[in-house]
């Protein structure tokens, strides 16, 4: 068989396989469908083939970024978690995925990227700590402005700012969405029957970050914790499909993931060493050039060439004076 497709995802934390909703959706779907992907968990979006995460590089070297397109691609490769769904269940999946995109996604963006305290204390800190050296200074800020822009366009309000009124409205919609999901799930283990489908992947991807992150303003988390069935649903998926990440991340991630991690860490280290050496060398050289070398060379050359001229001039002057 051909080489497996490669999946690039954000690193995990807080007991999650990845911190990003889209990455979680793709990871969960791949696990549900049993797709053999070569996983690269990275914390540098510039190392992804598409420049954003998640990204799937197929064995034909195509790159796919949108989670829904990745799922369609996997489905075409016969890794289909929705195979047992009836047409009506497929329609329901589509509807509930839309519901989350319209109602839950804006609140997620708000909670992680716009709410000032959450952003400064958790989101920005996490990304700044995990990104490699020069990127960590400007990428988190740029990601934030992009997310804010997205929220503004979604709401159709150009001057949208963080504030109580906006928070209340977004969270009200999100809470309603979570309640609807909870009602739809009922006491089942998964949304459709005994095995998980793409809808379960989407629900997991959207709810797990709310459940597991430790945001200072955790109103969404509080509400989610009160919905026992959704709570168990997320914990169950973490236990069953991501047993390694489910345990807190104190112990190193073994096997396939650590391969990816090692593979990524070493060049990162080298790059860092190389960069710092380069910066140091540059500083030294410029210092040397500015203070010593240039002026010495100039003085040296002038010292060799000018004195005769001066003497000549002086002698000419003397001659002139003499003539006078």
């Amino acid at each position: 068989m051909a080489a497996p497709d490669e999946l690039f995802c954000w690193e995990g934390d807080w007991g999650l396989p990845s911190v990003n909703t889209d990455c979680l959706v793709v990871l969960a779907y791949a696990q549900f469908a049993g797709a053999p992907l070569k996983l690269h968990k990275i914390s540098n979006p510039w190392r992804s083939p598409s420049g954003s995460l998640p990204a799937l590089r197929t064995n034909q070297k195509e790159t796919i970024s949108r989670p829904s397109d990745i799922i369609i691609h996997l489905r075409k490769q016969k890794y289909n978690a929705d195979y047992d769904l009836s047409a009506k269940e497929g329609a329901d999946s589509l509807a509930f995925i839309s519901l989350m995109e319209e109602k839950l996604m804006p609140a997620l963006i708000y909670a992680f990227w716009v709410e000032p305290k959450n952003y400064v204390e958790v989101t920005r800190r996490w990304y700044a700590e995990h990104m490699p050296f020069p990127l960590n200074f400007f990428l988190p800020g740029r990601m934030q402005s992009r997310q804010l822009e997205k929220l503004r366009l979604l709401r159709g309000d150009e001057s949208l700012e963080a504030g109580d009124e906006l928070e209340k409205e977004l969270y009200r919609e999100a809470v309603e969405c979570m309640n609807l999901l909870s009602q739809r799930l009922g006491s089942h283990k998964f949304f459709f029957g005994d095995s998980p489908s793409s809808l379960d992947a989407y629900v997991f991807g959207h709810l797990a970050p709310i459940l597991k992150s430790k945001l200072p303003n955790g109103k969404l988390q509080q509400h989610l914790k009160s919905l026992d069935n959704l709570n168990n649903f997320c914990t169950n998926i973490l236990l069953l499909y991501f047993p390694r990440d489910g345990r807190e991340t104190t112990n190193q991630k073994p096997s396939t993931q650590s391969e990816g991690a090692d593979f990524d860490n070493v060049p990162n280290k080298r790059k860092k060493q190389f960069l710092s050496a380069l910066v140091a060398l540059g500083a030294m050289l410029s210092y040397a050039l500015l203070t010593g070398m240039v002026s010495i060379q100039h003085v040296h050359q002038e010292a060799l060439e000018e004195p005769p001229d001066l003497q000549d001039l002086e002698s000419h002057h003397h001659e002139d004076e003499g003539d006078d």
Binding site: A95, L99, L180, L181, Q183
Partner: peptide, 18 residues
């Protein structure tokens, strides 16, 4: 009932979203 209302809201968002 609750499940039907959840489905109704979901399908409404499907129409808006797509």
């Amino acid at each position: 009932d609750d499940v039907q209302r959840a489905e109704m809201k979901a399908y409404m968002e499907l129409v808006n979203n797509m």
